[in-house]
Design a protein around this nucleic acid. Structure first.
Lengths: 249, 249
DNA sequence: TTAAAAAAAGCAAAATATTGCAAAATACTT
DNA sequence: AAGTATTTTGCAATATTTTGCTTTTTTTAA
Protein backbone atom coordinates (compact mmCIF):
# COMPACT_ATOMS: atom_id res chain seq x y z
CA UNK A 1 0.00 0.00 0.00
CA UNK A 2 1.15 3.50 -0.78
CA UNK A 3 2.03 5.81 2.05
CA UNK A 4 -0.41 8.44 0.78
CA UNK A 5 -3.16 5.88 0.58
CA UNK A 6 -2.43 4.79 4.13
CA UNK A 7 -2.49 8.31 5.49
CA UNK A 8 -5.73 8.96 3.68
CA UNK A 9 -7.22 5.97 5.41
CA UNK A 10 -6.01 7.22 8.74
CA UNK A 11 -7.63 10.59 8.17
CA UNK A 12 -10.88 8.94 7.16
CA UNK A 13 -10.87 6.90 10.30
CA UNK A 14 -10.23 9.95 12.45
CA UNK A 15 -12.90 12.03 10.77
CA UNK A 16 -15.39 9.23 11.07
CA UNK A 17 -14.85 8.25 14.69
CA UNK A 18 -13.18 11.39 16.05
CA UNK A 19 -10.58 9.20 17.68
CA UNK A 20 -8.34 6.24 16.84
CA UNK A 21 -5.88 4.03 18.65
CA UNK A 22 -2.51 3.50 17.03
CA UNK A 23 -2.75 -0.21 17.73
CA UNK A 24 -6.06 -0.45 15.88
CA UNK A 25 -4.67 1.43 12.92
CA UNK A 26 -1.60 -0.77 12.74
CA UNK A 27 -3.75 -3.89 12.69
CA UNK A 28 -6.26 -2.55 10.21
CA UNK A 29 -3.62 -1.25 7.80
CA UNK A 30 -1.37 -4.24 8.34
CA UNK A 31 1.79 -2.29 9.05
CA UNK A 32 3.93 -1.96 12.13
CA UNK A 33 2.92 0.40 14.88
CA UNK A 34 6.02 2.47 14.21
CA UNK A 35 4.83 3.22 10.72
CA UNK A 36 1.41 4.43 11.80
CA UNK A 37 3.07 6.40 14.51
CA UNK A 38 5.21 8.15 11.95
CA UNK A 39 2.22 8.73 9.69
CA UNK A 40 0.19 10.23 12.48
CA UNK A 41 3.09 12.42 13.51
CA UNK A 42 3.33 13.70 9.96
CA UNK A 43 -0.40 14.38 9.70
CA UNK A 44 -0.25 16.15 13.02
CA UNK A 45 2.48 18.38 11.61
CA UNK A 46 0.11 19.28 8.77
CA UNK A 47 -2.66 20.00 11.30
CA UNK A 48 -4.85 17.36 9.72
CA UNK A 49 -5.40 15.74 13.09
CA UNK A 50 -4.09 15.98 16.62
CA UNK A 51 -1.76 13.30 17.87
CA UNK A 52 -2.24 12.25 21.47
CA UNK A 53 -0.72 9.60 23.68
CA UNK A 54 -1.84 6.26 22.30
CA UNK A 55 -3.62 7.53 19.23
CA UNK A 56 -5.05 10.56 17.51
CA UNK A 57 -8.19 12.69 17.64
CA UNK A 58 -9.81 14.96 15.09
CA UNK A 59 -8.97 18.63 15.32
CA UNK A 60 -12.53 19.56 16.25
CA UNK A 61 -12.53 17.01 19.03
CA UNK A 62 -9.32 18.41 20.48
CA UNK A 63 -10.71 21.93 20.80
CA UNK A 64 -13.52 21.06 23.15
CA UNK A 65 -14.30 24.31 24.93
CA UNK A 66 -17.61 25.44 26.42
CA UNK A 67 -17.59 28.73 24.55
CA UNK A 68 -15.60 27.79 21.47
CA UNK A 69 -17.06 24.46 20.58
CA UNK A 70 -17.32 24.16 16.84
CA UNK A 71 -16.09 27.37 15.38
CA UNK A 72 -16.06 27.17 11.64
CA UNK A 73 -12.89 28.46 9.97
CA UNK A 74 -11.20 28.96 13.31
CA UNK A 75 -7.72 29.38 11.86
CA UNK A 76 -8.73 32.24 9.61
CA UNK A 77 -10.57 33.96 12.40
CA UNK A 78 -7.53 33.76 14.62
CA UNK A 79 -5.43 35.36 11.88
CA UNK A 80 -7.95 38.20 11.60
CA UNK A 81 -8.15 38.70 15.34
CA UNK A 82 -4.39 38.72 15.60
CA UNK A 83 -4.17 41.48 13.01
CA UNK A 84 -6.75 43.48 14.93
CA UNK A 85 -4.65 43.52 18.10
CA UNK A 86 -2.16 45.82 16.34
CA UNK A 87 -4.60 48.70 16.94
CA UNK A 88 -4.38 48.45 20.69
CA UNK A 89 -2.41 50.84 22.85
CA UNK A 90 -2.05 51.22 26.59
CA UNK A 91 -5.32 52.45 28.12
CA UNK A 92 -7.25 52.23 24.85
CA UNK A 93 -11.01 52.26 25.22
CA UNK A 94 -12.50 49.80 22.80
CA UNK A 95 -15.72 48.01 22.03
CA UNK A 96 -15.95 44.42 20.90
CA UNK A 97 -19.02 43.21 19.04
CA UNK A 98 -20.48 39.69 19.08
CA UNK A 99 -19.75 36.85 16.68
CA UNK A 100 -17.07 34.21 16.66
CA UNK A 101 -14.41 36.35 15.03
CA UNK A 102 -14.82 39.07 17.64
CA UNK A 103 -14.77 36.39 20.32
CA UNK A 104 -11.37 35.31 19.04
CA UNK A 105 -10.20 38.91 19.36
CA UNK A 106 -11.36 38.94 22.98
CA UNK A 107 -9.37 35.77 23.50
CA UNK A 108 -6.25 37.20 21.93
CA UNK A 109 -6.20 40.56 23.68
CA UNK A 110 -2.62 41.02 24.86
CA UNK A 111 -2.08 40.58 28.57
CA UNK A 112 0.51 43.32 28.87
CA UNK A 113 -1.52 46.42 28.02
CA UNK A 114 -4.35 47.77 30.11
CA UNK A 115 -7.64 48.23 28.29
CA UNK A 116 -11.15 49.37 28.94
CA UNK A 117 -13.49 47.26 26.94
CA UNK A 118 -17.19 47.64 26.26
CA UNK A 119 -19.18 44.79 24.81
CA UNK A 120 -22.72 43.72 24.04
CA UNK A 121 -21.84 40.06 23.73
CA UNK A 122 -22.26 37.59 26.55
CA UNK A 123 -19.55 35.17 25.37
CA UNK A 124 -17.13 38.05 24.81
CA UNK A 125 -17.85 39.37 28.30
CA UNK A 126 -17.20 35.92 29.75
CA UNK A 127 -13.89 35.80 27.98
CA UNK A 128 -12.87 39.29 29.10
CA UNK A 129 -13.62 38.51 32.72
CA UNK A 130 -10.67 36.16 32.66
CA UNK A 131 -8.28 38.98 31.77
CA UNK A 132 -6.88 40.87 34.75
CA UNK A 133 -5.70 43.76 32.59
CA UNK A 134 -9.10 44.45 31.00
CA UNK A 135 -11.79 46.56 32.62
CA UNK A 136 -15.02 45.24 31.18
CA UNK A 137 -18.32 47.09 30.84
CA UNK A 138 -21.35 45.27 29.56
CA UNK A 139 -23.85 47.30 27.54
CA UNK A 140 -27.16 46.18 29.02
CA UNK A 141 -30.31 45.44 27.11
CA UNK A 142 -32.63 42.71 25.96
CA UNK A 143 -30.65 39.63 25.05
CA UNK A 144 -31.03 38.04 21.66
CA UNK A 145 -31.20 34.28 22.07
CA UNK A 146 -29.44 33.34 18.87
CA UNK A 147 -26.75 35.99 18.63
CA UNK A 148 -26.22 36.24 22.42
CA UNK A 149 -25.85 40.01 22.30
CA UNK A 150 -27.82 42.84 23.88
CA UNK A 151 -30.24 44.49 21.48
CA UNK A 152 -33.26 46.79 21.63
CA UNK A 153 -33.87 50.38 22.64
CA UNK A 154 -32.17 49.94 25.97
CA UNK A 155 -28.93 48.76 24.45
CA UNK A 156 -29.07 51.49 21.83
CA UNK A 157 -29.64 54.13 24.46
CA UNK A 158 -26.74 52.86 26.52
CA UNK A 159 -24.53 52.95 23.44
CA UNK A 160 -25.51 56.57 22.80
CA UNK A 161 -23.93 57.49 26.12
CA UNK A 162 -20.42 56.33 25.29
CA UNK A 163 -17.58 57.10 22.88
CA UNK A 164 -14.77 54.61 22.35
CA UNK A 165 -11.47 54.85 20.49
CA UNK A 166 -12.05 51.75 18.41
CA UNK A 167 -14.97 49.45 17.76
CA UNK A 168 -14.27 46.00 16.42
CA UNK A 169 -17.39 44.72 14.71
CA UNK A 170 -18.44 41.77 12.65
CA UNK A 171 -21.11 41.60 9.99
CA UNK A 172 -23.37 39.03 8.45
CA UNK A 173 -22.66 40.15 4.91
CA UNK A 174 -20.56 42.75 3.15
CA UNK A 175 -20.49 43.96 -0.43
CA UNK A 176 -18.43 46.72 -1.97
CA UNK A 177 -21.55 48.31 -3.46
CA UNK A 178 -24.25 47.56 -0.87
CA UNK A 179 -22.10 47.94 2.21
CA UNK A 180 -22.79 45.95 5.39
CA UNK A 181 -26.06 44.01 5.68
CA UNK A 182 -27.73 41.60 8.11
CA UNK A 183 -30.66 39.24 8.08
CA UNK A 184 -32.08 40.70 11.26
CA UNK A 185 -33.46 44.18 11.79
CA UNK A 186 -32.62 44.40 15.50
CA UNK A 187 -29.01 43.50 14.90
CA UNK A 188 -28.74 46.27 12.35
CA UNK A 189 -30.15 48.86 14.74
CA UNK A 190 -27.70 47.88 17.44
CA UNK A 191 -24.77 47.83 15.05
CA UNK A 192 -25.61 51.30 13.84
CA UNK A 193 -25.50 52.52 17.41
CA UNK A 194 -22.13 50.86 17.89
CA UNK A 195 -20.69 52.67 14.89
CA UNK A 196 -22.10 55.95 16.20
CA UNK A 197 -20.38 55.33 19.50
CA UNK A 198 -16.90 54.88 18.05
CA UNK A 199 -14.28 57.25 16.78
CA UNK A 200 -12.93 54.54 14.49
CA UNK A 201 -14.66 51.37 13.37
CA UNK A 202 -12.78 48.25 12.40
CA UNK A 203 -14.61 45.49 10.54
CA UNK A 204 -13.41 41.94 11.18
CA UNK A 205 -14.59 39.93 8.22
CA UNK A 206 -13.71 36.47 7.01
CA UNK A 207 -13.24 36.38 3.25
CA UNK A 208 -16.21 34.14 2.59
CA UNK A 209 -18.52 37.00 3.54
CA UNK A 210 -17.09 39.28 0.90
CA UNK A 211 -19.48 40.15 -1.94
CA UNK A 212 -22.62 38.89 -0.22
CA UNK A 213 -25.68 40.80 0.92
CA UNK A 214 -28.99 40.41 2.69
CA UNK A 215 -32.15 42.32 3.45
CA UNK A 216 -31.28 44.85 6.15
CA UNK A 217 -28.58 47.43 5.70
CA UNK A 218 -26.29 48.46 8.52
CA UNK A 219 -24.25 51.11 6.75
CA UNK A 220 -22.20 51.94 3.70
CA UNK A 221 -18.59 50.98 3.50
CA UNK A 222 -17.45 54.56 3.99
CA UNK A 223 -18.65 54.37 7.60
CA UNK A 224 -15.97 51.75 8.18
CA UNK A 225 -12.41 52.88 8.66
CA UNK A 226 -10.60 49.58 8.36
CA UNK A 227 -11.55 46.16 7.12
CA UNK A 228 -9.50 43.17 8.24
CA UNK A 229 -9.64 39.86 6.41
CA UNK A 230 -7.36 36.88 6.44
CA UNK A 231 -6.31 37.55 2.83
CA UNK A 232 -3.32 39.45 1.50
CA UNK A 233 -4.32 42.97 0.41
CA UNK A 234 -3.47 42.08 -3.19
CA UNK A 235 -5.93 39.20 -3.35
CA UNK A 236 -8.34 39.47 -6.32
CA UNK A 237 -11.36 39.10 -4.02
CA UNK A 238 -10.42 42.40 -2.44
CA UNK A 239 -10.17 44.21 -5.78
CA UNK A 240 -13.59 45.83 -5.59
CA UNK A 241 -12.90 47.08 -2.10
CA UNK A 242 -9.71 48.86 -3.04
CA UNK A 243 -11.16 52.04 -4.45
CA UNK A 244 -13.38 52.50 -1.41
CA UNK A 245 -12.44 54.91 1.33
CA UNK A 246 -11.23 51.98 3.38
CA UNK A 247 -8.00 50.74 4.83
CA UNK A 248 -7.39 47.07 4.19
CA UNK A 249 -5.28 45.03 6.55
CA UNK B 1 -9.83 4.38 25.76
CA UNK B 2 -7.72 7.42 24.99
CA UNK B 3 -7.05 9.92 27.69
CA UNK B 4 -8.39 12.70 25.47
CA UNK B 5 -11.54 10.74 24.87
CA UNK B 6 -12.03 10.22 28.56
CA UNK B 7 -11.53 13.88 29.33
CA UNK B 8 -13.93 14.75 26.55
CA UNK B 9 -16.53 12.55 28.19
CA UNK B 10 -15.91 14.19 31.53
CA UNK B 11 -16.45 17.63 30.03
CA UNK B 12 -19.65 16.51 28.38
CA UNK B 13 -20.90 15.13 31.65
CA UNK B 14 -20.03 18.32 33.49
CA UNK B 15 -21.65 20.56 30.92
CA UNK B 16 -24.75 18.43 30.81
CA UNK B 17 -25.35 18.13 34.53
CA UNK B 18 -23.34 21.11 35.77
CA UNK B 19 -21.86 18.92 38.46
CA UNK B 20 -20.41 15.44 38.73
CA UNK B 21 -19.02 13.19 41.42
CA UNK B 22 -15.60 11.68 40.90
CA UNK B 23 -16.90 8.32 42.03
CA UNK B 24 -19.64 8.37 39.41
CA UNK B 25 -17.18 9.32 36.72
CA UNK B 26 -14.80 6.55 37.72
CA UNK B 27 -17.55 3.98 37.49
CA UNK B 28 -18.99 5.28 34.25
CA UNK B 29 -15.61 5.50 32.54
CA UNK B 30 -14.36 2.27 34.08
CA UNK B 31 -11.09 3.64 35.42
CA UNK B 32 -9.77 4.14 38.90
CA UNK B 33 -10.77 7.19 40.89
CA UNK B 34 -7.15 8.34 40.83
CA UNK B 35 -7.23 8.58 37.08
CA UNK B 36 -10.44 10.57 37.12
CA UNK B 37 -9.00 12.80 39.79
CA UNK B 38 -5.93 13.47 37.67
CA UNK B 39 -8.05 14.16 34.61
CA UNK B 40 -10.25 16.59 36.46
CA UNK B 41 -7.23 18.32 37.92
CA UNK B 42 -5.79 18.70 34.46
CA UNK B 43 -9.03 20.03 33.00
CA UNK B 44 -9.29 22.43 35.90
CA UNK B 45 -5.83 23.69 35.05
CA UNK B 46 -7.05 24.38 31.52
CA UNK B 47 -10.13 26.18 32.89
CA UNK B 48 -12.43 23.72 31.19
CA UNK B 49 -14.18 23.04 34.47
CA UNK B 50 -13.80 23.80 38.15
CA UNK B 51 -12.66 21.09 40.50
CA UNK B 52 -14.32 20.99 43.89
CA UNK B 53 -14.11 18.62 46.81
CA UNK B 54 -15.61 15.31 45.70
CA UNK B 55 -16.21 16.21 42.10
CA UNK B 56 -16.32 18.98 39.54
CA UNK B 57 -18.71 21.70 38.42
CA UNK B 58 -19.00 23.57 35.14
CA UNK B 59 -17.19 26.87 34.90
CA UNK B 60 -20.46 28.81 34.80
CA UNK B 61 -21.25 27.24 38.11
CA UNK B 62 -18.04 28.26 39.81
CA UNK B 63 -18.56 29.78 43.17
CA UNK B 64 -16.73 32.79 44.49
CA UNK B 65 -18.50 33.02 47.79
CA UNK B 66 -16.10 33.17 50.70
CA UNK B 67 -17.62 30.05 52.20
CA UNK B 68 -17.41 26.34 51.57
CA UNK B 69 -17.19 25.12 48.03
CA UNK B 70 -17.92 21.50 47.46
CA UNK B 71 -20.04 19.45 45.20
CA UNK B 72 -22.49 18.37 47.87
CA UNK B 73 -23.44 21.92 48.85
CA UNK B 74 -25.22 22.09 45.52
CA UNK B 75 -27.82 19.65 46.70
CA UNK B 76 -28.97 22.18 49.26
CA UNK B 77 -28.89 24.99 46.76
CA UNK B 78 -31.11 23.00 44.46
CA UNK B 79 -33.60 22.53 47.26
CA UNK B 80 -33.63 26.27 47.89
CA UNK B 81 -33.99 27.14 44.23
CA UNK B 82 -36.81 24.64 43.86
CA UNK B 83 -38.70 26.29 46.71
CA UNK B 84 -38.19 29.68 45.08
CA UNK B 85 -39.94 28.62 41.88
CA UNK B 86 -43.24 28.47 43.76
CA UNK B 87 -43.40 32.28 43.54
CA UNK B 88 -43.54 32.31 39.77
CA UNK B 89 -46.71 32.97 37.78
CA UNK B 90 -47.38 33.36 34.09
CA UNK B 91 -45.84 36.64 32.81
CA UNK B 92 -44.13 37.42 36.09
CA UNK B 93 -41.37 40.00 35.85
CA UNK B 94 -38.51 38.93 38.06
CA UNK B 95 -34.88 39.71 38.75
CA UNK B 96 -32.26 37.10 39.52
CA UNK B 97 -29.10 38.06 41.34
CA UNK B 98 -25.68 36.45 41.01
CA UNK B 99 -24.21 33.62 43.06
CA UNK B 100 -24.53 29.90 42.73
CA UNK B 101 -27.85 29.56 44.49
CA UNK B 102 -29.45 32.09 42.19
CA UNK B 103 -27.82 30.36 39.25
CA UNK B 104 -29.56 27.18 40.34
CA UNK B 105 -32.84 29.06 40.31
CA UNK B 106 -32.16 30.21 36.75
CA UNK B 107 -31.55 26.59 35.80
CA UNK B 108 -34.71 25.40 37.46
CA UNK B 109 -37.08 28.01 36.06
CA UNK B 110 -40.10 26.07 34.81
CA UNK B 111 -40.37 25.74 31.05
CA UNK B 112 -44.13 26.07 30.96
CA UNK B 113 -44.65 29.63 32.18
CA UNK B 114 -43.52 32.72 30.32
CA UNK B 115 -41.31 35.06 32.28
CA UNK B 116 -39.49 38.32 31.87
CA UNK B 117 -36.27 38.12 33.72
CA UNK B 118 -33.72 40.81 34.55
CA UNK B 119 -30.29 39.88 35.76
CA UNK B 120 -26.91 41.38 36.56
CA UNK B 121 -25.11 38.08 36.47
CA UNK B 122 -23.25 36.81 33.43
CA UNK B 123 -23.63 33.11 34.28
CA UNK B 124 -27.32 33.56 35.02
CA UNK B 125 -27.81 35.35 31.72
CA UNK B 126 -26.06 32.51 29.90
CA UNK B 127 -28.37 30.05 31.54
CA UNK B 128 -31.49 32.06 30.74
CA UNK B 129 -30.56 32.35 27.07
CA UNK B 130 -31.19 28.65 26.79
CA UNK B 131 -34.80 29.03 27.90
CA UNK B 132 -37.25 29.79 25.09
CA UNK B 133 -39.96 30.91 27.50
CA UNK B 134 -37.83 33.52 29.25
CA UNK B 135 -37.29 37.03 27.94
CA UNK B 136 -33.93 38.07 29.34
CA UNK B 137 -32.71 41.60 29.96
CA UNK B 138 -29.20 42.16 31.17
CA UNK B 139 -28.60 45.12 33.45
CA UNK B 140 -25.45 46.66 32.03
CA UNK B 141 -22.55 48.06 33.95
CA UNK B 142 -18.96 47.46 34.92
CA UNK B 143 -18.34 43.78 35.43
CA UNK B 144 -16.84 42.55 38.67
CA UNK B 145 -14.23 39.92 37.91
CA UNK B 146 -14.78 37.74 40.91
CA UNK B 147 -18.54 37.87 41.32
CA UNK B 148 -19.25 38.04 37.57
CA UNK B 149 -22.04 40.59 38.01
CA UNK B 150 -22.53 44.15 36.80
CA UNK B 151 -21.73 46.76 39.45
CA UNK B 152 -21.05 50.48 39.63
CA UNK B 153 -23.04 53.64 38.99
CA UNK B 154 -24.12 52.51 35.57
CA UNK B 155 -25.68 49.32 36.85
CA UNK B 156 -27.30 51.17 39.74
CA UNK B 157 -28.76 53.76 37.41
CA UNK B 158 -30.14 51.08 35.13
CA UNK B 159 -31.71 49.37 38.12
CA UNK B 160 -33.37 52.63 39.16
CA UNK B 161 -35.31 52.58 35.89
CA UNK B 162 -37.10 49.29 36.50
CA UNK B 163 -39.60 47.71 38.89
CA UNK B 164 -40.01 43.96 39.07
CA UNK B 165 -42.53 41.75 40.83
CA UNK B 166 -39.93 39.65 42.61
CA UNK B 167 -36.22 39.84 43.11
CA UNK B 168 -34.37 36.69 44.08
CA UNK B 169 -31.12 37.67 45.74
CA UNK B 170 -28.27 36.01 47.53
CA UNK B 171 -26.02 37.39 50.21
CA UNK B 172 -22.54 36.83 51.50
CA UNK B 173 -23.62 36.82 55.13
CA UNK B 174 -26.82 37.19 57.10
CA UNK B 175 -27.48 37.67 60.79
CA UNK B 176 -30.78 38.18 62.57
CA UNK B 177 -29.43 41.28 64.32
CA UNK B 178 -27.07 42.78 61.73
CA UNK B 179 -29.10 41.92 58.65
CA UNK B 180 -27.43 41.26 55.31
CA UNK B 181 -23.72 42.04 54.89
CA UNK B 182 -21.00 41.60 52.28
CA UNK B 183 -17.25 41.75 52.13
CA UNK B 184 -17.33 44.14 49.20
CA UNK B 185 -18.66 47.68 49.10
CA UNK B 186 -19.62 47.70 45.43
CA UNK B 187 -21.67 44.56 45.79
CA UNK B 188 -23.60 46.18 48.62
CA UNK B 189 -24.40 49.26 46.56
CA UNK B 190 -25.70 47.19 43.69
CA UNK B 191 -27.72 44.93 45.95
CA UNK B 192 -29.37 47.95 47.55
CA UNK B 193 -30.43 49.12 44.11
CA UNK B 194 -31.85 45.68 43.35
CA UNK B 195 -33.98 45.77 46.49
CA UNK B 196 -35.19 49.27 45.56
CA UNK B 197 -36.21 47.97 42.16
CA UNK B 198 -38.40 45.17 43.45
CA UNK B 199 -41.89 45.03 44.86
CA UNK B 200 -40.98 41.91 46.82
CA UNK B 201 -37.52 40.64 47.68
CA UNK B 202 -36.78 36.97 48.27
CA UNK B 203 -33.48 35.99 49.88
CA UNK B 204 -32.03 32.64 48.85
CA UNK B 205 -29.66 31.64 51.58
CA UNK B 206 -27.91 28.39 52.35
CA UNK B 207 -27.97 27.63 56.08
CA UNK B 208 -24.22 27.83 56.52
CA UNK B 209 -24.46 31.60 56.00
CA UNK B 210 -26.91 32.08 58.84
CA UNK B 211 -25.57 34.02 61.82
CA UNK B 212 -22.50 35.35 60.05
CA UNK B 213 -21.57 38.92 59.24
CA UNK B 214 -18.97 41.02 57.54
CA UNK B 215 -17.93 44.62 57.10
CA UNK B 216 -20.41 46.19 54.68
CA UNK B 217 -24.13 46.23 55.31
CA UNK B 218 -26.67 45.77 52.55
CA UNK B 219 -29.86 46.18 54.54
CA UNK B 220 -31.79 45.11 57.60
CA UNK B 221 -33.82 41.97 57.57
CA UNK B 222 -37.08 43.89 57.45
CA UNK B 223 -36.28 44.93 53.88
CA UNK B 224 -36.54 41.26 52.94
CA UNK B 225 -39.96 39.76 52.45
CA UNK B 226 -39.08 36.09 52.36
CA UNK B 227 -36.04 34.10 53.28
CA UNK B 228 -35.61 30.64 51.79
CA UNK B 229 -33.19 28.13 53.25
CA UNK B 230 -32.89 24.39 52.86
CA UNK B 231 -33.89 23.84 56.48
CA UNK B 232 -37.29 23.10 57.95
CA UNK B 233 -38.83 26.25 59.46
CA UNK B 234 -38.64 24.66 62.92
CA UNK B 235 -34.89 24.17 62.79
CA UNK B 236 -33.09 25.70 65.82
CA UNK B 237 -30.77 27.69 63.55
CA UNK B 238 -33.77 29.65 62.37
CA UNK B 239 -34.98 30.47 65.88
CA UNK B 240 -33.55 33.98 65.96
CA UNK B 241 -35.10 34.77 62.59
CA UNK B 242 -38.60 33.83 63.65
CA UNK B 243 -39.55 37.02 65.44
CA UNK B 244 -38.40 39.15 62.51
CA UNK B 245 -40.86 40.58 60.01
CA UNK B 246 -39.94 37.81 57.62
CA UNK B 247 -41.58 34.88 55.94
CA UNK B 248 -39.54 31.70 56.18
CA UNK B 249 -39.85 29.01 53.57
C1' DT C 1 -12.93 16.58 69.35
C1' DT C 2 -13.19 11.89 66.27
C1' DA C 3 -14.25 9.13 62.31
C1' DA C 4 -14.98 8.99 57.52
C1' DA C 5 -14.14 10.63 53.01
C1' DA C 6 -11.23 12.70 49.77
C1' DA C 7 -6.86 14.44 48.09
C1' DA C 8 -1.95 14.22 47.64
C1' DA C 9 2.43 11.87 47.31
C1' DG C 10 5.25 8.12 46.23
C1' DC C 11 5.92 3.92 43.80
C1' DA C 12 5.98 0.11 40.46
C1' DA C 13 4.03 -2.15 36.44
C1' DA C 14 2.22 -1.61 31.94
C1' DA C 15 1.64 0.95 27.87
C1' DT C 16 3.41 4.11 24.72
C1' DA C 17 7.28 7.17 22.59
C1' DT C 18 11.71 8.04 20.97
C1' DT C 19 15.96 7.02 19.02
C1' DG C 20 19.38 4.73 16.32
C1' DC C 21 20.11 1.38 13.05
C1' DA C 22 19.94 -1.90 9.27
C1' DA C 23 17.30 -4.14 5.63
C1' DA C 24 14.18 -3.43 1.96
C1' DA C 25 12.06 -0.64 -1.42
C1' DT C 26 12.21 3.19 -4.45
C1' DA C 27 14.31 6.83 -7.16
C1' DC C 28 18.11 8.68 -9.68
C1' DT C 29 22.47 8.78 -12.44
C1' DT C 30 25.52 7.27 -15.68
C1' DA D 1 21.24 -2.31 -16.80
C1' DA D 2 24.14 -1.56 -12.99
C1' DG D 3 25.41 1.23 -9.28
C1' DT D 4 24.47 4.77 -5.95
C1' DA D 5 21.64 7.74 -3.17
C1' DT D 6 17.28 8.41 -0.82
C1' DT D 7 13.24 7.05 1.41
C1' DT D 8 10.58 3.85 3.88
C1' DT D 9 9.95 0.27 7.03
C1' DG D 10 10.57 -2.82 10.97
C1' DC D 11 13.22 -3.90 14.96
C1' DA D 12 15.53 -3.36 19.39
C1' DA D 13 17.15 -0.62 23.26
C1' DT D 14 16.01 3.16 26.02
C1' DA D 15 13.06 6.93 27.68
C1' DT D 16 8.62 8.74 29.00
C1' DT D 17 3.79 8.61 30.18
C1' DT D 18 -0.05 6.61 32.16
C1' DT D 19 -2.29 4.06 35.49
C1' DG D 20 -3.63 1.75 39.78
C1' DC D 21 -2.19 0.75 44.30
C1' DT D 22 -0.55 1.98 49.00
C1' DT D 23 0.46 5.28 52.48
C1' DT D 24 0.14 9.80 54.37
C1' DT D 25 -2.04 14.18 54.81
C1' DT D 26 -5.97 17.14 54.44
C1' DT D 27 -10.79 18.13 54.41
C1' DT D 28 -15.38 17.33 55.82
C1' DA D 29 -19.34 15.80 58.75
C1' DA D 30 -21.08 14.83 63.07
Amino acid sequence: MLKEERQHNILNEVELHNRVLLTDLAEKLDVSIDTVRRDVKELDGENKLVKVHGGAVSTGFANHSPTRNNVYALEEKIVIAQKATSFLKENSVILIDGGTTCLELARLLPANINLTCFTLSLPVAMELLGKPNVETIFIGGMLSKDSQIAIGSNAIHNLSQIKVDYSFIGTGYVDSAFGLTEFDWDIVQTKKAVIQASKKTVLLCISEKLNSQHRFKTCDLNMIDTMITELEPEHPLLESFKNQDLYLL
